[in-house]
Design a protein around this nucleic acid. Sequence first.
RNA 1: GCUGGAGUGGUGAAAUGGUAUACACGCAGCACUCAAAAUGCUGUGGCUGCAAAGCCGUGUGGGUUCAAGUCCCACCUCCAGCACCA
Length: 759
Amino acid sequence: MKEYDPKQIEKKWQKEWEQSGLYTTPNKIEGKENEYVLVEFAYPSGNLHVGHWYAFAVPDIYARYRRMLGKNVLYPMGFDAFGLPAENAAIKNNVNPSEWTFSNIDYMRKQLRSMGASFDWSREVITASPEYYRWTQYLFLKFFEKGLAYQSETPVNWCPGCKTVLANEQVIAGECERCGSKVLKRNMLQWNLRITDYADRLIDDLTSLDWPKHIKDSQINWIGRSEGAEIDFQLTTNNLTPLSSGGARQLTTIKVFTTRPDTIFGATFLAVAPEVAIKLFDNDFGIKSATERENKEKLGVDTGYKAINPANGEEIPIWVVNYVSADYGTGAIMCVPADDERDREFAEKYKLPVLEGYKKAGFEDYGEKVTKYKLRDWVVSRQRYWGCPIPIIHCKDCGAVPVPEKDLPVILPEVLDYLPGNDGKSPLSKVEEWVNTKCPKCGGNALRETDTLDTFVDSSWYFLRYCDPTNDKEFASKEMLQNWMPVNFYSGGAEHTTMHLLYSRFFHKVLFDINLVNESEPYRRRMNRGLIMGTDNQKMSKSRGNVVDPDDYVSRLGADTVRTYLAFIGPYNEVGSYPWNPDAAVGVRRFLERVWKLSEKISEEEEASESTIDPIIKKVSDDISSMKMNTAVSALMILVNSFSEKNSISRKDYETILLLLAPFAPHITEELWHALGHETSIHLATWPTFDESKIIKEIATYAVQVNSKVRATLDLALTADEDEVKAAALALPEVGKWLSGQSPSQIIVVKGRVVNIVI
RNA sequence: GCUGGAGUGGUGAAAUGGUAUACACGCAGCACUCAAAAUGCUGUGGCUGCAAAGCCGUGUGGGUUCAAGUCCCACCUCCAGCACCA
């Protein structure tokens, strides 16, 4: 038999599969159930790295397995093609972002094919193509129609590096998620999506989902719902003495938010955020709010104003402090230094009274029960070129007017100057012939919105488009959505827990409410995968120089080896991080070589060995279902090793091995399958079944313990009853030695496993 | 600080409360070879011992149990997310 040459056979079969349309997924197959296996689509960064393989090839194993179980499995791929990183990279390389993105996509598509994944390329979506973003704009206008997209002048996160606004979710520890620049607060007129309206449902509906607890917890934590009360504090009359700036406001009360209204008797002062102080008193008293982490020292100034504690009638001072956030609750709190660590620290520093041992109040005795959230509305305006144009026209007389549906898509104009400006305006604002337009309502002169949408808007609905990718009447027909949604299994990166995953759930709920989709939750089962580290066990990055190029390994070891190695490296259902170890990958190649060589031992006379193979079928099936690919591979290795020791293997057993291995190593198994005379693809074959009765062993090896320490082992028929097992164990010389004449007080028998003789 | 998760050989890691370290890498020795690579075989937690065997071992300290990596309590360390959120 010829040698195993992955280079040759992998190319051959990839071409063959493509030509025969093996992975083109029909919308319906008679007698088969549809199943939707989704991976987060690719960002067209330029080239594929080992992390992409890990993200796509391991779920591909799952998709292939489900297909062999008789499901009609949709496993699509696309490109998240709009966005800052592509634009930044294009600027750096002095290429137009469009050119950069689309040439990257062409290259990556080729690389992705070398992986031997079962993607249905006929359903590919590219968010930067007008056929796609037409519908992004359409959906944005639906939000607008429902009052869920609105403009507001608010302090926003401004990234001076990317020269654009960021959503809260994109600010990590005060820094830009993309470029690491320190994020500044800036007041700007921005488009927002009203995700806060959905805060409760985004928490409550998690209950029904088959998601790992840690993902649910993170989302709940991020939304940050807390129950509390709003309490009005009356100001004393001396507050009405005129302010220097021209008189007091009609100010009579300050509303505070607290989660502990029961502690109101202990409140000895009020604290307000500087921004709130400006609103109330026209003065921030020189205090700046401490939003940055490093500014931890608590600062404050007594405003001189006083309020009455409604519980005990005491007059208490009002302070402006840097540790109260203006954008949470009411921006004002009642301070109970006896009960709250921060208030105590502040009270001690400024010698404010601390009232220990005060009386407790009822929850709603002095205020009204309210629920507050940490979640903010989603700022979707981006002052950048490479994004989906916001389909709004600003008219002096009519205000913000939606572009009529028939005029969609609003095509992103080709420009020469796509560099972001320092003025906070999108490069599109310089394209006068594009900006100047007519108002669709009154026909007067009007201006187009020049901001583009956050990339996360594009990716909030891409999985719906896969269901009906070429529809030019709707973003997806209800029939096709019914056909595929909800996603049965969604695999992706942990970094999207409070971004993409939250945004797309919100998006889907809105579409559900306006009856455009059939379900309120898009993803039934979700799994966050781990990370592949460099050989130095550090996160892969260009600056560290530890980025692993999979192409090298594919040409040296073969795609099948790389795929199987990535499956073998550790459990996929845990968010671990695994170093890329080329030596260990060699071990997987050796395993595939053994499978190849084993075909020489096929004997038509040999009988199938269910007792050996059936437990492995069960093990591999169970492990793939729960994404424990590592132990599935290990079980296959054990199986192949045991057959390699023998002189011959039956044809049926060998075929079973190939079938079990097919999802992991699709090329070598296809080659060997055909070498056995099969004319159709192994990937159309049915997953092996097993006989439960063959899984139960006939002979059991008992661990024989004396006082819980293993002293011997004992092979007995599983049918042996407890007394027989006891007698056999007691007859062992090793046991006699430890008993040394004493009689046991207790003998415990665990059928098929353990005998414990307790003296 | 809060929320979640994890600590097992030289390494990646296995283990329904029931023989801890499967599988793989690495390492050592042997075979094949002029040699090397490749391949195959053997060994590989620590300590004592020529051996037979024995003792100790899953971050630390307690507990439950005939039996604990696994369950309970306390602590330590690491990872992820959140963080002056009242």
